[in-house]
Computed example of a mutant assay.
Amino acid sequence: MGAEKPQFWYGILFTFSIAVFSFGIAQLPGFTYVGPLATAIILAFIYRQIFGYPDRLRSGIQFSAKILLRAAIILYGLKLNIDTVFSEGLPLLMKSAIVIALAILLSYTLAKIFKADMTLSMLLGVGTGVCGAAAIAAVAPIIKAKDEDTAVSVGIIALLGTVFSIAYLIVRPYLPIDDVAYGVWSGLSLHELAHVALAAEPAGEESLAFALLAKLSRVFLLVPLCFVFIWYMRRKQSRTGEAKVAFPYFLIGFIVMSLLNSYVLGDIVSLSEGFMTFISHLTTVLLTMAMIALGLNINMRDMAGRASRPFGIILLVSILLSITVYIIK
C-alpha cells in the first residue's frame, strides 16, 4: 500500500512533465498552429508505441485521465458568459443549434452508410459541432467511449481544426464577405475555440469579437446536448438491458462556473482579469495532462483500421458544415 502512493504521484508528475514538454514544443515554428493538446497526444502516442504503457504509474495516469479531465471541463465553464450569449448572441443560438444537429446527424448517417465505427464517429461529430476536446470529453463517458477513442477523436479534431483555420485565412481575401460575417462564419463552423481565434484574429477586433460570440453560443448548447445523449442512452439501455448510464455530475460544475463567470466575476474587474488568465492557463494544463493520459491508451494496430473511415467521414462533414454555414451566416 505504501508503494502505491508514490507511484500515484509519479503518474501525475509523468503526465505533467510531458504536458510542460508539449507546451515547449507547441511554441516552435509550425507547431504553433497545432497547439499543446494535439502535440501532447502525439507525444503520448509515440511514447506508447516505443516504450509501451507505463503500468507502474497507472493509478496516477488514470487520475489524470478521469479526475483532472472533469476538473478541466468544470473550469472550462468560466470561458462561457451566459449573459453575453443571451443579450447579444440569441440570433446565433438558432444557427448554432442547426450546426450541432447537422454535424451529429451527418456523422451518424454517414457512419451507418459506410459502416464506420459509430462511437468514434459520434465523438467526432460532437467535437466538430460544439467545441472540440471539451465537448468530446463531456460526451465520452455518457456514450461509454473508451479512453483511446476519446484521445483519437481529440487528435483528429485538433488536426482538422488547424487545417481548416489555415484554409479560412487563405481563402478569406478571395471571398465576397465582410469582416463581421467572416467572424460569424469562423465562430459557427470551426472546431476549437483556439481555431476560431486563429482564423478570425487577423480580420480585426470586430471580426474576432463576433467569432468568439458565435463560438460561445455553441459552447452554451453543450449542456442541453449532453442531456439529449443521456436521454438517448437511457432509452437504449431500457430496451437492451445494458448497464445504467451514470449522470455526469461534472456538468453541474460546468454550469456553476458559467453562472459565476457571467454574474459574479464580471462585476469584479480587478479580480477577474488576473484570475481569469490564471484559470485559463490552469484549464489548458489540466486538459493537456488528461489528453496525455488518454493518448497513452492508443494502440496503433488496434486503432488504424477503426479510425480511417471516421476520419474520412468527419473531413466530409467539416467541409459540408463550412459550406452550409457560409450560406446561412
Rank of each mutant, 00 (worst) to 15 (best):
F278L: 05
A134E: 11
L37C: 12
L120I: 05
K66L: 07
K144R: 14
K236N: 11
T109N: 00
T128Y: 00
K112L: 10
A140V: 06
I170K: 00
L123K: 07
I73A: 09
G253H: 06
F86S: 01
M276I: 08
L193G: 01
S189A: 13
V184W: 01
G204M: 07
I98L: 09
G35W: 09
A290Y: 11
M233A: 10
E88T: 01
T288F: 13
G312F: 12
N261E: 07
S59H: 08
Y263V: 01
G35F: 10
D267L: 10
D179E: 15
F31L: 09
D149S: 14
I313G: 06
P173D: 03
K244I: 09
K144M: 12
V223M: 13
L259Y: 03
F164P: 02
S270C: 04
M289A: 06
E201S: 08
V130R: 04
V264R: 02
I298V: 13
K144C: 07
A133T: 14
N261C: 03
E4H: 14
F23T: 08
G187P: 02
R235M: 10
D267F: 14
W9T: 13
S207Y: 07
I61Q: 03
T84V: 11
W185L: 11
S217H: 09
R48S: 13
A203L: 05
A97F: 12
K112W: 09
T162I: 01
D267C: 05
S59K: 10
L213S: 02
S258N: 08
S153E: 14
L320H: 02
I177A: 04
I313K: 04
S258Y: 03
E273I: 11
F220W: 06
A209G: 02
F8Q: 05
I298F: 03
